[in-house]
């Protein structure tokens, strides 16, 4: 690909201006959001770009870890806010995201598939954290709505001598499935309908397609493993808040 600088970006912005004019002309009512979105994403991404340049330049392990912890905290806060009905949703999400990241990145590092360099850790960490955040928010939301919507079924089970784990198993499974649906669907369509972002980016940056595919496969498996761990941790912690050790539903 040709060398990219701010001039090329300015040309790309022309596309957005065109889109905004089109939206206005057709009275879609989205022109204002488009305009704000254009500026906002530009500012956010450029700021992140400079921040990453800075961190990459330091090549300091603690700076990498610090960056990832900050990303996890933002992700956990966002997930916690989405699952409003779950007590300590942000704390739960943090533990879920942290565990998912630790297990997968730790394993990849341990097996020598990646190195503890910002170039690997930050983009992979970002993807893991983003997907784990989504998954744990979805899991907690679904768990709450299913359990609060099925009190009679659950308390009937409990009254028949079942443990809280047995009485809630269906809803636990459904919540995890809801959180992983995105990942599971991704597997079905990957390469056929959509080319994943990481792969597209690598091909654009000049990598050979096959190499891009191999890296994409590794990234895909790693993300799925991380999301699975995060989803299970989020569900386990959230569901424990809804029952007492005496097999009582607390909602």
């Amino acid at each position: 690909m040709i060398d990219i600088g701010f001039l090329e970006v300015a040309i790309a912005i022309c596309l957005m201006i065109l889109a905004i004019i089109l939206a206005r002309w057709q009275r879609t009512g989205t022109e204002k959001e488009l305009a704000i979105g254009t500026v906002r994403s530009f500012v956010q991404l450029v700021a992140v770009g400079y921040a990453l340049e800075f961190i990459f330049g330091m090549e300091n392990f603690f700076a990498i870890i610090g960056t990832m912890v900050v990303m996890m905290m933002v992700g956990a806060y966002t997930a916690g806010k989405r699952a409003v009905n779950i007590k300590n949703g942000s704390v739960i999400s943090f533990i879920a995201i942290f565990t998912g990241s630790l297990v997968t990145l730790g394993l990849m590092l341990g097996l020598g598939i990646i190195k503890a360099k910002a170039q690997y850790m930050i983009p992979l960490g970002g993807m893991i954290i983003g997907n784990s955040m989504n998954c744990s928010a979805l899991v907690m939301e679904r768990l709450y709505s299913d359990i609060s919507g099925n009190k009679l079924a659950i308390e009937t089970s409990l009254s028949l001598g079942k443990s809280w784990q047995d009485a809630s198993r269906t809803y636990f499974q459904r919540a995890i499935k809801a959180g992983m649906m995105h990942m599971l669907n991704f597997f079905k369509t990957v390469g056929l309908v959509a080319l994943p972002g990481a792969m597209t980016g690598m091909i654009l940056a000049g990598a050979s397609p096959l190499k891009a595919v191999l890296i994409q496969i590794i990234v895909g498996y790693m993300l799925t493993a991380a999301v699975t761990v995060a989803g299970i941790v989020a569900a386990q912690l959230a569901i424990r808040q809804m029952f007492t050790t005496h097999h009582q539903l607390k909602l």
């Binding site: 009679l152 308390e155 409990l158 009254s159 028949l160 001598g161 079942k162 443990s163 005496h246 097999h247």
Partner: peptide, 17 residues
């Protein structure tokens, strides 16, 4: 134990599930 208690003192709800 709670689970054993609930077998000895059974509860039938207003709305059958």
């Amino acid at each position: 134990p709670v689970q054993a208690l609930r077998e000895k003192i059974a509860l039938v709800f207003q709305m059958p599930y």
